[in-house]
């Protein structure tokens, strides 16, 4: 759902760019404390994987395709702020080198995918996770639901921006965008859950949000939000 230049008006571009700049700026500041020795290469390789997976459009209904987003995967591995930073890196390179997504729309794209898909969904995920059994299955179920949500809500935000810009009315854009992304989100859920499952098997210590001790959700949430 990379927005090209021309779809959004100036006020919508400015508002989303301001919020994205604030989130990325905070992420840059937080990076000091959140980047351990392991997270430095992990951020690089997560960005590379997201770039690769985003190239793989899969067909969904009605001559439409979708591709992996990855913001929530990054949030599970790196936490919300580094996730937004990672997505900003991927979107910047896609825009600069590959002409995917507009230059003026970069802020809106970072907002939809990084701020909504990464940061907001991370906090929703923490709520879902704490309401499910403290087990590997409970954790992966929360991952699956949250990754699906990340795509659907990011697409709804995109529809809202199109409506605010006068490009397409909300009662047209929202059902159309959400309708197709409900399907694309299933792909997101499958890929994210499989990847998180594999990383849990080989390097559970790299999954920042996973608590192998199964301590209560609230405690986990507090610890993670506070940064380690």
């Amino acid at each position: 759902m990379h927005i090209p230049d021309g779809f959004l008006d100036v006020k919508t571009l400015a508002a989303t760019a301001a919020m994205s700049a604030a989130a990325v700026g905070y992420g840059l500041k937080k990076a000091n404390e959140e980047l351990g020795d392991k997270q430095v290469p992990l951020l690089g390789v997560t960005a590379a994987f997201i770039f690769a997976a985003q190239m793989l459009n899969f067909p969904v209904a009605g001559g439409t395709s979708g591709h992996f987003l990855g913001a929530f995967l990054a949030a599970v591995l790196l936490g919300p702020w580094l996730s937004c930073l990672t997505i900003a890196v991927v979107l910047f390179i896609q825009m600069l080198i590959f002409a995917d997504g507009g230059l003026l729309a970069l802020g809106a794209n970072v907002f939809n995918m990084g701020v909504i898909g990464g940061i907001l969904i991370y906090y929703i995920f923490m709520v879902i996770k704490s309401s499910l059994p403290k087990s590997r299955f409970g954790f992966l179920s929360a991952v699956a639901v949250s990754s699906w949500l990340s795509v659907v809500i990011a697409s709804a935000a995109c529809a809202l921006e199109l409506a605010l810009s006068g490009t397409s009315p909300l009662n047209v854009a929202l059902p159309a965008m959400a309708g197709v992304h409900i399907l694309i989100g299933i792909g997101e859920a499958i890929i994210t859950t499989v990847v998180v499952g594999v990383v849990l098997n080989v390097r559970p210590d790299l999954v920042k949000t996973y608590d192998s001790e199964g301590i209560s959700g609230t405690k986990t949430a507090g610890g993670v939000v506070g940064g380690q």
Binding site: M1, P59, G63, S65, H67, S155, C158, A173, H181, I184
Partner: peptide, 14 residues
Amino acid sequence: SPFASSSPDGLEKV
């Protein structure tokens, strides 16, 4: 990647 679907993505199709 050469085998990826070339159909328009969600936003493009909308």
